[in-house]
């Protein structure tokens, strides 16, 4: 999986055809999708199907016959210790794949797939969904797909087109995606300047539904609302509580609420609420949420026992710290904080 991750990093902004070829020949793919068992006399269809359904054209654009023919073309691709082409196990008869006939090998199948218009649409859609918004409209997809095709499947050019598109900066794309657990956890640590990384963070993300390097299946994580169920959401709330509660010690690198508050010159409840709503959720909350947070910070309650409902009253250091922790916890539980 480490090698595969390197392959993604190396080819991620390059040519899609090269990326697909390298990923297809990557031992992780060959082993995981059973191509080691894909032999001349007994073809195994696993990779042939998934490369079309999940990595190029998408479902509905090929027949069961295409699956079987592509499987024959991938016979002999093995990875006993790095990629190895086992000539003896390769089927050298003609294959008819998506209307073309020839003595195809795996490379030919990948070339044919990469050039298909369905692939341009499929990959463009995926990139838009990952970086911009879910459920993009067809016209937007087609505009990006044109860039993908015209640039001979150059991913950098395709991404540039997405980032420069008006849709990318539209209201529709604003806070329109749900943070993945990795985005939620790592994003929180970065924005609260937490330097100390606890060893169990991967386990925390796994309980939120994202076990890094171990996707639930070859399709990967679905994203969107599939991240959000009662127990995965509770994990997020409790991670927020933990980050907000942990003992501070500047040397240890955990959050120090007083330092954070001082950075913003936050002296009273109103300063704190407004500064941190700005910093963590771009002030994108309804009036009621702000009102409730102000009430929480100003309320007389343990741990501080401060008696004041005046949101502009100056807080002493102890009150500041106690209330800051609660405030950060609560902001991180907001619906908007789950969004990116």
């Amino acid at each position: 999986m480490y090698l595969q991750n390197n392959t993604f990093r190396k080819n991620g902004l390059g040519n899609f055809g090269e990326l697909l070829l390298n990923v297809s020949k990557d031992p992780a793919m060959i082993v995981w999708l059973d191509n080691q068992q894909n032999t001349k006399n007994k073809p195994n269809e696993n990779y042939a199907r998934e490369v079309m359904e999940l990595f190029t054209m998408g479902i509905g654009n090929y027949t069961e016959k295409d699956v079987k023919e592509a499987a024959r073309a991938f016979t002999g691709w093995m990875a006993p210790n790095g990629f190895y082409f086992n000539r003896k196990q390769h089927d050298t008869q003609d294959k008819t794949f998506l209307g073309q006939t020839g003595n195809f090998g795996g490379e030919d199948i990948i070339k044919i797939l990469v050039a298909r218009p369905e692939t341009a649409n499929f990959i463009s859609r995926k990139l838009i969904c990952f970086y911009c918004l879910d459920n993009p409209d067809q016209k937007y997809i087609e505009r990006i797909a044109e860039v993908f095709s015209n640039s001979k499947q150059d991913l950098r050019a395709t991404l540039e087109a997405i980032f420069k598109s008006p849709e990318f900066r539209s209201d529709k794309a604003y806070h329109a995606k749900i943070k993945s657990p990795a985005e939620y956890v790592i994003g929180t640590l970065k924005s609260l300047q937490v330097d100390k990384l606890d060893g169990d963070l991967p386990a925390v993300m796994a309980r939120m539904g994202q076990n890094l390097f171990e996707p639930p299946n070859v399709k990967g994580w679905d994203g969107g609302m599939s991240w959000i169920a009662t127990d995965t959401l509770m994990e997020r709330f409790n991670f927020a509580a933990r980050i907000a509660t942990q003992k501070f010690d500047a040397k240890e690198g955990y959050i120090n609420p007083v330092v954070l508050a001082n950075q913003f010159d936050a002296k009273n409840a109103q300063d704190m609420v407004d500064h941190f709503l700005d910093r963590l959720v771009d002030k994108d909350v309804p009036a009621n949420a702000r009102k409730q947070l102000l009430a929480y910070v100003a309320a007389a309650a343990p741990p501080t026992g401060t008696q004041s409902s005046n949101v502009t009253a100056k807080l002493d250091a102890k009150a500041l710290e106690g209330k800051m922790r609660g405030l950060l916890h609560l902001i991180m539980t907001l619906p908007t904080y789950q969004l990116s």
Binding site: D171, I228, P335
Partner: peptide, 10 residues
């Protein structure tokens, strides 16, 4: 016309 997920999250 934005925030497709807010109500479901709520």
């Amino acid at each position: 016309n934005s925030h497709p997920y807010v109500e479901e999250l709520r």
